[in-house]
């Protein structure tokens, strides 16, 4: 069995199984926890929880009024949107998803994808540089942050190398690319990448919490 055979076969099965197990474990264990009783008195003009939660979620999508926050927000958008375009727009990735779930849609020209991937990688590097250079974020950062960054950036880097045939033989870099995606899938539920699911809960919950107390965010 070659490295590529392993990556496309049993490796993918293991990674997807751990991903599914981990994500559902964390979601069920979190959502089925007993909810703390809200003991504060709701303000008279506070909207319903649904409205407050929705408002809170969308408000957090807007940058705060400082230049540092502006950079973090805009750079965050760049690599998040870039990742989405590369993952869901590249014809080869659509074929991968079609193989798993049977879903398919038109791809985006590979030249455009390549440009987006380079911008995404540059944006990820900028995020890392900012994290390291800022004393506050450096102090707050630990293994979870750096490893989550690594498993996010590696598939982009190996994907670019594979598409450009920069490393020969092609099947080796293709295998490394797929393995890097599998590493991301395995780490996803247990690290900060889980925010892809939890961000909807945390931001909405914060919105409801602040709204109830009349805090303007």
């Amino acid at each position: 069995m070659t490295l590529l055979d392993f990556a496309r076969g049993i490796g993918m099965e293991i990674a997807l199984s751990i991903f599914a197990l981990g994500v559902l474990w964390r979601l069920f264990s979190l959502l089925l926890l007993p909810w703390s009783k809200e003991r504060s008195v709701k303000r008279a003009d506070a909207p319903s929880s649904l409205v407050a939660g929705t408002q809170g979620f969308f408000r957090h999508m807007w940058p705060a009024q400082t230049s540092a926050s502006m950079f973090v927000t805009i750079n965050g958008y760049v690599f998040h949107i870039g990742l989405a375009i590369v993952v869901f727009g590249f014809a080869q990735h659509i074929l991968f998803i079609k193989g798993l779930f049977g879903l398919t849609w038109p791809g985006i020209p590979s030249t455009f994808i390549n440009i987006v991937a380079v911008i995404t990688l540059a944006s990820l590097v900028a995020a890392l540089v900012r994290r390291i250079s800022n004393p506050v974020t450096r102090l707050l950062s630990g293994f979870n942050d750096y490893f989550s960054w690594t498993v996010t950036a590696l598939p982009v880097l190996t994907g670019l190398l594979a598409v450009g045939h920069y490393i020969e033989p092609y099947e080796t870099i293709l295998a490394l690319h797929i393995l890097s995606v599998e590493l991301l899938l395995i780490w996803f539920p247990f690290g900060k990448l889980m925010h892809a699911f939890l961000v909807f809960l945390t931001r909405s919950e914060t919105g409801i919490f602040y709204s109830r107390r009349g805090v303007d965010i």
């Binding site: 599914a20 559902l24 991968f96 193989g99």
Partner: peptide
């Protein structure tokens, strides 16, 4: 070529059910 070479959907679904069960049990 990018598609998997035969991921067993039953294994992945079983892992998902197991994850949900473990999560529910811990809650």
């Amino acid at each position: 070529l990018p598609a998997d070479t035969g991921v067993n959907g039953g294994v992945v679904a079983g892992a998902a059910v197991a994850g949900a069960a473990v999560g529910a049990a811990s809650a």
